[in-house]
């Protein structure tokens, strides 16, 4: 009897054990391995795990390209407030829209459903200074002064990337906000209406204060994307002109695979990991705490 019970509980836990074992190996062992490589003497393609100290980290401090890439990575954080503001506005409009909301919801989600390679190529065509649709339209409306070099100009490239990413992510953030708005208790909204609250007051006083979890989810998703942004930028600009749109992910790719400097590339990856952890750990802590309540 006791044996059967034990066998049964092992069988019940088996899927979890397998999942945990796979996650442990492919995520945590890989992270540990990456940290070891970053403090190793590994140069070239032949692994060499002998300890070299923290010289790769010291090298990073003196590498202007690292700092530029870090600055650009943080620049993409601007995406968070802008996407969230636009997403919230769209969510409220969709909420007010009533019957047609379904169609708009699908249309707005479409950019997020597309691969970054597709949208990167699309924006590269739209931004093309001489014959791209944006400059062409600006010229057609007599707004020649607003035409720009967009993703090909050193001063405008990061703003161009930001604008394209806001386009891609706003629909998604709107949906998360919309789900949050829809989950607000109907009775509370009904009570507000009975008390004579205007639409603006209702959203301002009743709905918005209850969107905390949606804000947090959007915040983490957008921040994590901006930290690991690679494919979209690689397709749109290859990190250029020069190094103007290098982010940490672009720099890691170039150092690892173009220059075969595994130890240095791994050291930069560790820094990126630490930044991600600094964001994810508090998020998880607050999520679990609010779930416990």
């Amino acid at each position: 009897m006791g044996y059967n019970l034990r066998a049964k509980s092992v069988l019940e836990f088996l899927p979890f054990i397998v999942a945990i074992a796979l996650a442990f190996y492919f995520i945590y062992v890989a992270i540990g391995w990456n940290v070891i490589v970053s403090i190793s003497k590994w140069a070239g393609l032949r692994p060499d795990y002998s300890f070299s100290g923290f010289q790769q980290y010291a090298r990073m401090v003196d590498d202007p390209l690292f700092w530029k890439s870090l600055t650009n990575t943080f620049f993409l954080f601007l995406m968070m407030p802008l996407c969230m503001l636009l997403g919230l506005l769209i969510a409220i409009l969709l909420d007010l829209c009533g019957k047609g909301a379904g169609i708009f919801r699908n249309i707005l989600l479409l950019p997020f459903a597309l691969s970054f390679v597709v949208t990167g190529t699309l924006w590269a065509w739209m931004y093309a200074p001489s014959n791209g649709v944006i400059n062409t339209m600006l010229r057609a409306f007599g707004l020649e002064s607003l035409t720009s070099m967009w993703h090909t100009g050193e001063g405008t490239v990061m703003w161009s990337i930001l604008l394209a990413l806001i386009w891609q992510f706003s629909g998604y953030t709107a949906l998360i906000f919309l789900a949050g708005i829809k989950s607000v208790d109907e009775d509370v909204i009904g009570a507000a209406k009975v008390d004579g609250a205007s639409t603006f007051q209702m959203y301002r006083r009743v709905v918005l204060p209850q969107l905390g979890p949606s804000v947090l989810t959007n915040f983490v998703i957008l921040m994590l994307f901006s930290l690991k942004a690679f494919d979209f930028i690689w397709v749109l600009t290859s990190g250029g002109p020069g190094t103007a749109s290098h982010t940490l992910a672009i720099l890691i790719y170039r150092v690892l695979f173009e220059q075969t400097q595994f130890a240095y590339g791994s050291a930069i990856s560790v820094i990126l990991l630490l930044i991600v952890l600094a964001i994810v750990v508090p998020y998880m802590y607050f999520s679990y705490r609010s779930a416990e309540r």
């Binding site: 090909t152 100009g153 050193e154 290859s238 990190g239 250029g240 002109p241 020069g242 190094t243 103007a244 170039r254 173009e258 220059q259 075969t260 400097q261």
Partner: peptide, 17 residues
């Protein structure tokens, strides 16, 4: 390859400015 990787970036930048 280290030279080529950096040369591409430097020349890409020069082509722009």
């Amino acid at each position: 390859e280290q030279v080529l990787s950096q040369l591409n970036v430097i020349i890409g930048d020069f082509a722009q400015n």
